[in-house]
Design a protein around this nucleic acid. Structure first.
Lengths: 245, 245
DNA sequence: GCGATGAATTTGTAGTATAAATTACATCCA
DNA sequence: TGGATGTAATTTATACTACAAATTCATCGC
């Protein structure tokens, strides 16, 4: 799991608040923000804290500041879409079907390749970490426990590729799985359906069979995509009924 | 091309300087930095500017600050490896063979999938942008002109996938191509060898043939990888001769 | 009409003061 | 002696003020 590095500090709160506002679209692109003094006052923080937050948002590509002109929200094209915060903000505000589709597409591309690479290059220690995650999935008795172990499984697999660029894509996988868990929660009857798929991937990595690992992972993501479609259809049906009654 | 947003501001300079020091390993992980007051004095900036820079580095995962304990460099595992700055810093200091290999592996995974997606979903306008980039490559007469057009080609293809998560991976592609251009510069006789490969990819995208586009892109990246290996071998040989004489 | 010039506005940088957090030490009690 | 507990010291976090730099915009002069 990724560290939820406490959000208690003031400028972190400001980062979260402004970031969410921008990504959700409540602060339209191109439009300028109030000048620092006003904005700071309005948010009840000092200009110092506000500026530290703005620098971070600027580094994420969300805003741009120029003297005299002021600070304005940048077009979404310039956002660091792979940044963990940006992904989380998008998820918090618009888990639209199209966004979920994009996340799944990324999984389809990344994870089979990662599984193959892990099968080729994993060390015994890395294999043990994957195994531990699998065992935790097997032993899990709640959806939360499953979710945590599942994330650990996918993260440890990415780490076993021994390519840190690949590992950094975990933020995307994490977000994708996150939305999936949320959908699954609606009818969380048997959340351990995907266990055999994970075993196949693990076994292929253990036996150093890249192509077998790739194919097993393709199937896993495919199943996941189908499940998402079913869930979304169900939810839509349910909400239609609800609004009709 | 990505905007080189002027680096003139003071805190940007500090970000670049500290970022480079950390990523190059000159500031060892785990080791603590001098406390803010001292560090600011040593770098001839105010504590204000230094702190704004540190917040950004912290957002990139390079450092971590705690009261009383001070600020320390984090392990490389926690760095945002996909961040454009981090990639650039790595490249500036250690374009080692292993790093180049990792970049190439990322291209092998991302670009064929992106070519296929672009072939499926590109709009006529997006196709025109790709075509324009191809024409610029065709017309280029210097390595620099080629490099610029080549980057534009790959970026426009990523944009044509209409998946902004995919598009954001351009920072990786850009870095990979960048190191390739540097290597090519050593014997830049015929830098337009890859032109036919690009034509094939473009044509497949135009004709909406995902699998053809994927295969053409696989070949392109493959050729690129082989060229890199040849260049590196040549360079090594050359430097061996030089040190022997 | 047009160019130059200067005033106004907003971010950028500096410096100081104080709050909050956390470590490390010392002290006290059993 | 051992352990807990409180207190001091250190470092980052926040606030506030003042001024510098850049850039826009209007005004003035021709």
């Amino acid at each position: 799991m990724v560290k939820p590095i406490a959000v208690r500090s003031l400028h972190n709160q400001v980062i979260q608040e402004l970031g969410r506002l921008i990504v959700s679209g409540e602060l339209e692109a191109g439009k300028g923000l109030p000048r620092e003094e006003l904005l700071a006052e309005r948010m009840n923080v000092s200009r110092t804290a506000l500026r530290e937050a703005m620098k971070v948002l600027s580094a994420k590509g969300l805003i741009e500041s120029r003297q005299k002109t002021g600070t304005r929200v940048r077009e979404a094209i310039y956002w660091n879409q792979l940044d963990a915060d940006v992904l989380a903000w998008r998820c918090a505000s618009m888990p639209t079907e199209s966004f979920v589709e994009k996340l799944v597409e990324m999984r389809e591309i990344i994870e089979p390749a990662a599984a193959a690479a892990a099968a080729r290059r994993r060390t015994p220690e890395q294999l043990a970490v994957i195994k531990a995650a699998y065992d935790a999935m097997d032993a899990s008795e709640t959806l939360d426990a499953w979710a945590e172990a599942d994330l650990a499984f996918h993260e440890s697999m990415l780490q076993a590729t021994n390519n840190e660029l690949m590992t950094s894509l975990f933020s995307v996988i994490e977000t994708a799985l996150g939305t999936y868990f949320v959908l699954s929660a609606s009818n969380s009857a048997n959340f351990k359906l995907a266990l055999p798929q994970h075993l196949k991937v693990y076994e292929a990595i253990r036996r150093r069979q890249p192509e077998v690992a790739r194919q097993a992972m393709v199937k896993m993501v495919d199943d996941s995509r189908n499940n998402i479609r079913r869930h979304q259809a169900n939810n839509k049906q349910a909400s239609n009924k609800a609004s009709a009654s």
